[in-house]
Write a protein that binds this DNA or RNA. Structure first.
Lengths: 174, 174
DNA sequence: CCGAACATGTAAGCAGTTACATGATTCC
DNA sequence: GGAATCATGTAACTGCTTACATGTTCGG
C-alpha cells in the first residue's frame, strides 16, 4: 500500500487537493512511484474514511483541500521506520535478457546497445532536472539524495549494457 | 503482459509442466519477474487457448507437459525485438527517501544504513549464486549477463546508501 | 505405511490502468 | 466567447497476491 504512504508523505508538507497531488506525482515522483488520477481520488476517499487525512478547506470548482491528521503523520512515520521496503523488483528489460538466446547474436547485441542509449538518455534528463532544482534546496536534501540514486543507476545501466553488448561477440553460435 | 512472455521464454528451452515452470521462476527468475503458482496455471490455460503453447504429453499425477508452438516462438521473438521495455520502476525503498524529512536525522541515517546492509547482503547472495552456476555455461551467457546486472546494481545501492547516510550529517536541523 | 514432493486448479480481493463523464473558472 | 486549465468522480478491465481445496506417486 505504498500509494497511500506516498500521498501521506506529500500531504505532510502541507495541504493539497487531489489535483495538486496529481501534479506532484507527475513532477517529482514520476520515476519512483507513478500514480494516475483515478487512483489518487479514490485513495483520498479511503484516507479520509480512515481519518488519516481530512478536508481542511473547500475552494472554487468543487476543490477540496486535504490536510494530514495526527493519525496520518503517525502512520507515515510507522511506514518509514518500521516497515521493510520490499525488495522484489520486476524488470521487464532484464527479463528479456534471459531469453535473448531465442534471437540471433546481432539482434541480441542491438537490444543491449539500445538499452545503453536509453539509459544514457535517462541520465541526461536527470542531469537536466538537477540543474532546474539546483538552487532551491533548504529542505530538499532528500530529493537530491533520491536524484543521485537515479544518476548512479542510469550510469550503471549504461556501462553494463555496453559491457554486455561486447560480451556477446565473445560467444560462439549464430 | 510480461508473465506470458517469461513463460514462453522458459518453454522455448524445452517442454515443461506448470509445476516445472514454477520451479524455474523460483530459482532463476525470482529477482527479475516473480510469479505465483496460481498465476502460472491460469496463464498456461490462456496460452493454450491462444495456441502459443500446447499440451505435448501427459504424465502421472495429472501432469501436463506443455511445449511452445511456432506461433509462440514468433510471439516471443516479437516481444524481444519489437516491444520497448517499460521503464517505469516502482521502488518503495526510494519512495521512502523522499519523505525522510518526516523523521529525525538519526532515524533517517539508520534507514539509509540499513539499506546499505541489505544491498551488501543481496550482493553476497548473488556472488554465491554465481559460484553455484559457474561451470555450467555453454548456453548460459545471458544468465551471466543478467547476474552481472544484479551484482552491479547491489554494489551501486550499497555505495549510494553509505554516501547518503553521510550526507545527512552535513545538513542543519533536527 | 507415511511423509515429502509432485501436481493442478479455483475464488476472493487488492492495486493499477484506461476510458468515460461532467462541470467551473480564468485568461486572452 | 472560447480555449486552457482547474477540478472531481465512476466503471470496466487486467495483473498479482493470498488462501482454499484436492488428489497422486515416490522413497524410505
Amino acid at each position: 500500500m505504498s500509494l497511500r504512504h506516498a500521498m501521506l508523505g506529500l500531504l505532510a508538507r502541507g495541504p493539497a487537493s487531489g489535483y495538486d497531488l496529481l501534479k506532484l506525482f507527475e513532477i517529482s515522483l514520476a520515476n519512483v512511484w507513478p500514480a494516475t488520477q483515478s487512483q489518487v481520488y479514490a485513495e483520498l476517499g479511503r484516507l479520509a474514511d480512515a481519518d488519516l487525512v481530512k478536508v481542511a478547506a473547500e475552494g472554487p470548482r468543487g476543490r477540496k483541500e486535504y490536510a494530514i491528521t495526527d493519525d496520518g503523520v503517525a502512520e507515515l512515520r510507522h511506514w518509514l521506520t518500521d516497515v521493510e521496503p520490499n525488495r522484489v523488483g520486476r524488470s521487464d528489460m532484464l527479463l528479456r535478457v534471459f531469453f535473448l538466446d531465442s534471437v540471433d547474436h546481432g539482434q541480441a547485441r542491438e537490444y543491449l546497445e539500445r538499452q545503453a542509449v536509453v539509459a544514457a538518455r535517462s541520465h541526461q534528463s536527470l542531469l537536466g532536472l538537477r540543474d532546474v532544482v539546483a538552487g532551491s534546496d533548504p529542505l530538499e536534501t532528500y530529493g537530491r539524495i533520491a536524484l543521485e540514486y537515479g544518476l548512479r543507476l542510469t550510469s550503471m545501466q549504461r556501462e553494463w549494457a555496453e559491457w554486455a553488448a561486447g560480451e556477446i561477440d565473445r560467444q560462439p553460435g549464430t
